[in-house]
Design a protein around this nucleic acid. Sequence first.
DNA 1: AGGCCATGCCGACCATTAAAGACGTTGCGC
DNA 2: GCGCAACGTCTTTAATGGTCGGCATGGCCT
Lengths: 325, 325
Amino acid sequence: MPTIKDVALKAGVSATTVSRVLNNRGYLSEELKHKVHQAMEELNYRPNELARSLSRSKSNIIGLIIPHVSLPFFGELTSHIEEHAYREGYKLLLCNSWQDKQKEQEYIHMLRASRVDGIIMGSHTLEVEAYRQMNLPLVTFDRQISPDIPYVCSDNYEGGKLATTLLIQKGCRHLAHIGGHPKLNILSHLRCVAFEDMAKQHNLEYVTLHTDNNSFDFEAYEQLLGQLFAEHPEVDGIFAGSDIIAAYALKACRTRGRRVPEDVKIVGYDGIMLRSLLDPPITTIRQPMEAIGKLAVDLILQQVQGHSVAAAHILPVELEEGATT
Amino acid sequence: MPTIKDVALKAGVSATTVSRVLNNRGYLSEELKHKVHQAMEELNYRPNELARSLSRSKSNIIGLIIPHVSLPFFGELTSHIEEHAYREGYKLLLCNSWQDKQKEQEYIHMLRASRVDGIIMGSHTLEVEAYRQMNLPLVTFDRQISPDIPYVCSDNYEGGKLATTLLIQKGCRHLAHIGGHPKLNILSHLRCVAFEDMAKQHNLEYVTLHTDNNSFDFEAYEQLLGQLFAEHPEVDGIFAGSDIIAAYALKACRTRGRRVPEDVKIVGYDGIMLRSLLDPPITTIRQPMEAIGKLAVDLILQQVQGHSVAAAHILPVELEEGATT
DNA sequence: AGGCCATGCCGACCATTAAAGACGTTGCGC
DNA sequence: GCGCAACGTCTTTAATGGTCGGCATGGCCT
């Protein structure tokens, strides 16, 4: 790989001058620019980003820690984040935490050592102190860590309210909610809170089920649904914490001969693209994933530029009716 | 962020000694090691990977270019690649090419500029020359670019054969294949070739449909299936080029009142985890994704270490029967 | 005395950037 | 018409944070 010196030699100027042409800094004659550009092309030169990063103390890399890219929601979110980051001249270092405390901590260390300019956290298993200590631009998704760390999330409460209200309005009298995260500091838990509030408000019976570990285990979902139908056969309305869970609910209904939406109505959450391959299409609360991804990147960039940013960033959700209600 | 000098000062030794402790080089007394480690901990010191990379001319970063992480197959593959890379001390820079020529080229430039140690390509829209020019450890997935660039793929022909044979054996007489990539140099096209070979061998009628652009457009799949059922209502066996396409096929059958598997049988390809949320579970040809991911990483590492590697790496597939056959 | 062990010090090196300096030409004020 | 600053253009030097090799310096052991 040619270096700046090779270019300098070929163009008959000093390395600094090449650097100045690269960055368009200071006084540069047209002739010189041309000469240098030509030399760069002939050598197929690309400036070494490692050296640039070291010199400028800025890597233009954003670290992304999520539970797992292969989860549809996080896959889509990652796509959007990557796209906006790239558009702004940033690269994305991907880390799958598997929702594991130790992995998450290791990744944080690794990203700090790599001098990433900021970290977007979609996985949060650690204690508050661990995040505050890292002393780096940070944005979390769906968790409020402390008043000075910005977070992005969808309007979880409103989403839960919309979903539950729809079920009630469509005539459901025995409601159930199945969610993934029982932890209170995870904002998605507000979906559950809203569900319970609505059910109480309408004096309806309701059940709430959660996976006990903080994971995204597909088998756990199947088990939970089995449990739900065994213990509460009267349930006629399910608000699922994600579209994936909704898909399992749909499958569980079909297996047990419950017709959807006639006998049981189902509402999901997220609005992942893949729901289009389910049949019937599920009703869901759509999160604005693209906006979330863009905002997460922007909040990192603003912090990088030294601006202070607001803590709460709650984006609106939208009810999208399919054929399961 | 503290530097090696800060650690040296705190421990009362020279920076060289700290570097020696870091890299376990030369003679080091236990006492010294302890002293230095303590200083590092107290300062929460992490060596600057940018500086190390620059100095060693090795970044320990692998670039991954794929069409899109949010496609389930690539999401899962990415997960495995990331996991194995991390286990070997490598980081992963993620690039979604959107199957776009220009983006792919830009990403290649960017990754070279970032001095990644190697590139895993799961997206290939460019001409052969573009790949050969990059002069970097490279591994491609599902495409043979040239005899000296190693590639990893599943046994596409065998997979196509297994799928088609199963359909025939189960009594299908009017076969159809729906695939995504009509390009011949993409190895997954062999699935289609095997399909046609088998159909001919058994003297059966068959249709082959492809999306015309080289994309993964979900709507195109739906359209294609509509076309298939309109023009060839007699079709009773579908070999889909992916599980996603199979899911759409399933949906299309249901919409049109064709029972699966009684009237139409369906076999997919890939074996993505998400197929477990489909109902009925689809029969599929499972690619060993974890092995593919691991191998791709290993092939990069071997090249990094200067070993020459074999070109072809074809991993076995497995037929997994669900309830769509 | 010679060999091993443990550390320090110096400088080159990686590729690039930032700040300051050099140098010939002009223009301006007095 | 002389001194001096400004100007445009490029170069020199130092810094970024770490690695690495060589060489020097002791102390301890045999």
